[in-house]
Design a protein around this nucleic acid. Structure first.
Lengths: 114, 114
DNA sequence: TAAGTATATAACTATTTGCTTATGAATGTA
DNA sequence: TACATTCATAAGCAAATAGTTATATACTTA
């Protein structure tokens, strides 16, 4: 059990971000795999701007980091974030979302950029 | 570290409820003290219906339970809830809100009903 | 029983949120 | 250079949210 003391306001901000199915699932996925935007678009069946906007909120808080690789921008969880242990604790209790990535591979979409 | 596996949808619902400063603070307080509605109204400086509506959302999910004691209705955390360990894990990392109750006592408001 | 206190619910409102489409900027390639 | 692809941003919209005031319900007490 962690013993971090978290500020209430910070905690509220983080929980609000995680309290969205798309973002929570994205975080769970990105906890294990770097993802480019187009993969996430495929997975969640929403528009590309919708994904970008979710990523922006996560990035604005520093919860994820981006890294350009040529044409693509890959996102991953920022494990150096002050509250990463807190977030990790939550993500660890969620079921693996590896099936979603597997579905992409089978469908051939993931290969397109990774 | 807990190893519970939580459904994504359930987790989202809970995090959404906790992602509100009033509700998160209420939960932290109720984790240690039974509270009647009027106390919470005093603490949060919002209208009584606002508090009742927050409590209803928490109660609808079973996260808190109510108990009438005469004229008052006391709310407390439902420690038998399937996901209570998950919630407790979050609450434990928050700073104590005991000062808010102490302020009530000094102000004489808490005594009125407890 | 009548009046007072505590709480819940209903109705309304302003703000926030998550999505969409349209468009711009950055990179890769013919 | 021209064109295609990837991603970000802007603008607009519908739904959700958190608050308010008004009112109903339940209990206590004079």
């Amino acid at each position: 059990m962690l013993k971090t003391t978290m500020k209430i306001d910070d905690t509220v901000t983080i929980l609000k971000l995680l309290g969205d199915k798309t973002r929570l699932t994205m975080m769970k996925i990105m906890d294990h795999y770097d993802c480019c935007v187009c993969e996430l678009v495929e997975i969640f069946k929403v528009s590309q701007p919708a994904i970008s906007q979710h990523l922006r909120k996560l990035r604005d808080l520093g919860l994820v980091k981006e890294e350009r690789r040529g044409q693509w921008i890959f996102y991953s969880i920022n494990k150096t974030h002050e509250y990463y242990p807190f977030i990790e604790q939550i993500l660890q209790q969620l079921p693996s979302q590896a099936d979603k990535l597997k579905a992409l591979e089978e469908q051939g979409t993931r290969i397109s950029c990774c």
